[in-house]
């Protein structure tokens, strides 16, 4: 490869190529590869899905079908902070829906949406396994428990 081309290579692409090479010929590789690709890119752009299809010799329609089936996979870029509001049963009966409504109003986005300033992506999740602290939400890896509508604004303000 010429030097000029070398410079043009995106390190993410190199990483993806490594992942694909590592999984070549292995059964059941698609989902772990998608997970790794999402770690690399932050989401799953269409070109990445096409590359994965070629690399694993899987029709791209199937790759897309899998990527749109599982809640973990994102086909659009995420905001800087991912806010997951738990609507598990415990949180629901302890007022999780009201917390969610407040957040939706505060951010102006619904489930799956990203704020215009790219600050937050809002996701509704079914249970984060912290039922003892209901109602709860997670921002990135931090769990916030025993929430109430009036506590929301203060927490959100801590995130750039």
């Amino acid at each position: 490869m010429c030097e000029l081309c070398q410079d043009l290579i995106d390190p993410k692409e190199t990483k993806l190529a490594e992942v694909l090479a590592g999984y070549a010929g292995r059964k059941g590789a698609l989902i772990p590869v998608l997970q790794k690709a999402q770690e690399i890119y932050g989401y799953l752009p269409a070109d990445v899905l096409r590359r994965i299809g070629r690399g694993l010799k899987i029709p791209v329609a199937r790759v897309y079908g899998v990527a749109t089936f599982y809640a973990q996979f994102r086909l659009t870029p995420m905001g800087q902070n991912v806010l997951r509001v738990c609507l598990g049963t415990a949180c629901h009966v302890r007022g999780g829906a009201k917390v969610l409504e407040t957040i939706e109003q505060e951010l102006g986005v619904k489930d799956g949406g990203t704020t215009e300033d790219q600050r937050f992506t809002l996701e509704i999740v079914a249970c984060i396994g912290a039922c003892g602290l209901a109602p709860t939400m997670m921002i990135n890896d931090q769990v916030y428990g025993r929430l109430a509508p009036d506590k929301v604004a203060g927490i959100l303000a801590q995130y750039e």
């Binding site: 096409r50 791209v60 329609a61 897309y64 749109t68």
Partner: peptide, 16 residues
Amino acid sequence: LDFSHRGFNTQVGPAF
């Protein structure tokens, strides 16, 4: 062709 999305939003069609 394949299914995409899921549940009530399931569709059939080419990728993307």
